[in-house]
């Protein structure tokens, strides 16, 4: 299945990518599976999206609370640093 991935702010610059389509083998992947697939690419993905890095995610414009959140075909997943507005 295919999903759209969006990268924002510092993460977009660090990865040199603002958005892409990603194909996942699993039929019912979680947000954690998406992260794992991206980390498998190696640097800079494995570092920037690695454990311990301050990365937040949104699924279809809603803040994600857990890497167990389910991802569906056609979803828009965004990865970004902690927000700093206001």
């Amino acid at each position: 299945m295919n999903i759209k991935i969006v990268y924002l702010a510092r993460l977009r610059e660090a990865l040199g990518c603002s958005e892409e389509m990603l194909t996942l083998a699993s039929a019912s992947p979680t947000l954690g599976d998406v992260l794992a697939a991206l980390r498998e690419r190696g640097e800079p993905w494995s570092y920037e999206l690695g454990e311990g890095r301050a990365v937040r995610a949104a699924i279809n414009h809603e803040m994600a609370t857990s890497t167990d959140a389910l991802v569906h075909a056609g979803d828009e997943i965004a990865f970004f640093p902690p927000v700093t507005g206001g």
Binding site: R10, A54, M63, F80, P82, V83, G85, G86
Partner: peptide
């Protein structure tokens, strides 16, 4: 709530260059 939940990011430009503001 806006400070922690609304998706905005600040980048500051100083004489020595630009950097993203940390949360």
């Amino acid at each position: 709530y806006l400070k922690t939940q609304a998706p905005f990011w600040k980048k500051e430009t100083m004489a020595k260059g630009a950097h993203w503001v940390d949360a």
